[in-house]
């Protein structure tokens, strides 16, 4: 078990992975300097996801780990996603069905979209 593991480690060139990661880091800093919003978002967060995936796969050896470890981690992320999407409708608005948070209204002029659920 550990021998196979050690074998597999030999095949990974860690320095190469590290060089790619560093290159992507440079990209993620240069990208936002262009000043286009979607380029910034992709450069900042898209690359962060790719970098995290590479660290996970090659440094944490998820690429050669048992599959269910990956499922464990992914389930934790799913629960987080659930938390985010369950909570964000409330926290990301400054008013509810029977309250308005005046101190907390966004300064942006555009109307925050709210659905047809508001009867009051």
């Amino acid at each position: 078990m550990t021998e196979e593991h050690a074998e597999a480690h030999e095949h990974t060139n860690y320095i190469k992975i590290w060089a790619i990661l560093t290159f992507m880091l440079v990209l993620s800093i240069l990208g936002p300097m262009i000043g286009i919003k979607w380029v910034t978002l992709i450069a900042a967060f898209g690359i962060a996801v790719v970098k995290a995936a590479m660290v996970g796969a090659y440094f944490m050896h998820l690429n050669i780990e048992k599959r269910y470890v990956w499922y464990m981690l992914f389930t934790a992320l799913l629960f987080l996603g659930l938390f985010f999407f369950g909570v964000s409708p409330d926290v990301m608005k400054a008013e509810g069905s029977n309250w308005v948070n005046h101190n907390n209204m966004p300064v942006a002029t555009e109307e925050v979209g709210h659905g047809d659920g508001h009867s009051e």
Partner: peptide
Amino acid sequence: SFFVWAHHQFIAGIDPRMAH
């Protein structure tokens, strides 16, 4: 059990669509 928590907050001013 992870999908039910907001039933504790029905009158806390949460989004009515979520309450459904």
